[in-house]
């Protein structure tokens, strides 16, 4: 069992949970994820490691309640425990192999959409602490849906907020903001976009025009997340790859996003029923 140490409501239906997992905390690197199973009957849910503290032996995750499993997870309180927390999984971000010297002369642009801010945070933190130049564009539907704003502002040179409704920061999409920054004369050597698949697809189209190399983190369906089932397969550069072990980060320009988006919906009809069932039969305190 993995004890929940802390829980915070970050925005409507988005929670931060801190969990005791000493082995995981001391091995985690930016770009990696974990798998949580809330109880004996639960699903294995993949979530990015949004922060980790080896000395405290804890990891943080940010969970958006989407379906029955994430809703049930978010009903737990500090002092409760998850049945399983496995990780770190997947490959660390490519830049973790670069020397501090190299990092100092590299300019990064992060594009975070919605809960994508959570996985971006440990990456920005890692780079900023090592002296890289880090700009972050963070987008959400509205001001109330922004998460990690305060934390993020401490680990980057510039934080640009975008909202779809203009309630805060730039009124418009993260891709439009990226274009604007480049038009202003800012230069980036490497970009990373993490968020909903559709946002990553459009980020890829935009950044290709701007000729900036782009990495994306793919949130495919997963079962074991250890390379045993192939549920997570994606086509990258014309080849089938397993996102859980060969990813989750890939070169955006090689990813078949349309296929990836389609594969995400494979269980939607069945899962859709679950969600209605769940809301019907449980007094839900999380909306």
């Amino acid at each position: 069992m993995f004890k929940i140490l802390d829980k915070k409501l970050l925005a409507p239906s988005i929670y931060m949970m801190e969990v005791e997992a000493p082995r995981l905390a001391s091995a985690a690197k930016p770009g990696q994820f974990l798998v949580v199973r809330d109880d004996e009957k639960g699903e294995r849910v993949p979530l990015t490691i949004s922060d980790f503290d080896a000395s405290k032996g804890s990891v943080e995750m940010v969970i958006q309640t989407i379906g029955a499993s994430t809703m049930k997870m978010c009903e737990k309180e500090p002092g409760d425990a998850f049945a399983d927390v496995l990780g770190p999984l997947g490959c660390p971000s490519e830049f973790t192999a670069m020397s501090d010297e190299q990092l100092k002369s590299t300019r990064f642009l992060f594009i975070a959409g919605g809960v994508g801010a959570a996985p971006v945070y440990p990456q920005a933190k890692y780079l900023f602490q090592r002296g890289a130049r880090v700009d972050v564009i963070m987008g959400a539907k509205s001001a109330g849906m922004l998460i990690y704003e305060e934390k993020m502002s401490k680990v980057c040179d510039n934080l640009f907020i975008c909202t779809d409704d203009g309630s805060k920061g730039f009124h418009g999409l993260v891709t439009a903001k990226a274009k604007e920054l480049v038009a202003e004369g800012r230069v980036y050597d490497q970009a990373v976009a993490i968020g909903p698949m559709i946002m990553m697809k459009f980020a890829a189209l935009t950044l290709k025009e701007l000729a900036i190399p782009l990495t994306v983190s793919l949130n495919t369906l997963m079962v074991d997340a250890t390379g045993m089932c192939g549920a997570c397969r994606v086509t990258v550069g014309g080849r089938t790859r397993f996102a859980c072990v060969e990813g989750p980060e890939f070169n955006a320009y090689e990813v078949d996003f349309d296929e990836a988006m389609r594969r995400q919906t494979m269980y939607r009809d069945i899962e859709g029923h679950d969600r209605e069932d769940y809301i019907e039969h449980h007094k839900c305190n999380i909306r």
Partner: peptide, 14 residues
Amino acid sequence: ENLNGVVSANEFLT
């Protein structure tokens, strides 16, 4: 092979 509805036996059995 990546169409929805194609799974490995390992995925199905797991």
